Computed example of a mutant assay.
Amino acid sequence: MSAGRYALLVATGRYENEDLGRLRSPARDAEELADVLRDPRIGGFEVTTVLDGRHHEVTRAIERFFLDRRRDDLLLLHLSCHGLKNNNGELHFAAGDTDRRLLASTSVPALFVHQQMRACRARSIVLLLDCCYSGAFLAGGKGDTTVHVGDELAGHGRAVLTATNRTEYAWEGERITELSPEPSRFTGSLVKGLRTGEADRDRDGLIGVHELYDYVYEELRDSGAGQRPQMWAEVEHRVVVARSVRQALPHAPGNEAPAPAPPPRPAPAPAGPPPTLAALLPLTEALAGLPCMEDAPGRQQFATALGQFLARRIDLRGVRQREDVVAIVRTALRQEGGEIALLSTVELFEGAAAAAEVRHRLPP
């Protein structure tokens, strides 16, 4: 039997308990996301939706969704609802009948979702969480926002994208108020990236889960939203969420992907890589070995100090070390005098000997 692509969308916007305000986004989120996931040109998923379900309906749907799957199946679970924490800081997903005083018996615990994912035979599972405090699903209970591979979710072929970190709210449009339905910022960006194909960053015609995260992160950052999506992933192979509808289109001007090669014609051979490219790799390797680059807070402090030298802000995702280091080095190399500023920052954090070692790595 061939592998299948299955999606379960759980959207809860109406609540019996008056303490839980009505949400305008979940129903629209489910509708829009289901459209692009079902589209045979894009997702090609078999989609099931649970709208405003009670807690026993949601838990049963989730357990059934992960049951009796084949190893080569791709499963995608999307939760759009209120995210609530109990007194121990544990995350719960609100259902239609949730009483926030009785979370253990009337909500969907994040632990339950963890357990169903761990028990599932499918090698590729993508979880999308659009709720407040959704980053708490990733954290190991230590109160930080860093994604740890050794957390409860650790396993084979799992990827989790969350709308926020452990402490942030997930925004609906411009306000968290009940108005006319519109997608949340997180799910709205997901849908846009899939529907337009803009999430296909390398223009190979396929949208992988890492590309989708990068697209959503940059969309929310550029929009000024006060939330930072998080990601955790451990997969043996590339997990393709969708095809790109832009595959057959010509590359747009200014797109970062390389344009199709023109017909051969006489041209001078390039003398070699530009100076910035020649320095990017050795500087990245040198900085990645510094103690100040070992954790996300250290990399952020380094980027802040370097940004003051360069008179510009350096935004880091704080998820993958090498990605942050590349962003730091690339920003420095694009600025006049950036290499000197980078070396000065290294000396500030690690001393003159470390700065000399980094300087030694630079190409002539």
Score class of each variant (00 low, 15 high):
R54L: 11
A94M: 09
I176M: 10
D73R: 07
L281D: 01
V10T: 02
A279H: 01
A327L: 09
A341K: 04
Y169C: 11
K142A: 14
G13M: 05
L127S: 03
F112R: 07
L33G: 02
A95V: 02
R334H: 10
G53M: 04
R203W: 04
R265D: 07
A353G: 07
T331W: 03
S134K: 00
E347T: 14
G83K: 04
L37W: 03
A261Y: 00
R14I: 15
G157V: 14
S134N: 01
D99E: 09
Y215F: 15
A271T: 13
E234I: 15
I340W: 01
F45H: 02
L283G: 00
R70S: 15
P264N: 01
D39L: 12
G298T: 10
G197P: 08
H237R: 15
G157W: 06
P26C: 10
V160Y: 01
G272T: 10
E18P: 09
I125V: 15
I62C: 06
R100F: 11
D295I: 13
V147L: 11
R60G: 13
H210W: 07
D35W: 09
L8Y: 01
A139W: 00
N255G: 11
R299S: 05
P263G: 06
A269Q: 04
A122V: 14
E347C: 14
P291H: 02
V149D: 06
G193S: 09
G226T: 09
R54M: 08
T304R: 12
E182Y: 11
I207C: 05
G226L: 14
E350M: 12
E323G: 09
P273E: 03
G193W: 05
H156I: 15
L212R: 04
P363K: 11
V10M: 06
L84C: 06
E219V: 15
A34M: 04
F302H: 00
A27S: 11
W232R: 11
R69M: 13
G89P: 07
V36Y: 00
Y213I: 11
D19C: 08
E285H: 10
F309N: 00
G53I: 06
Q227L: 10
Q247K: 13
R201G: 14
P264C: 08
A95R: 00
R221F: 12
A286H: 01
A354F: 01
G208S: 15
R195E: 10
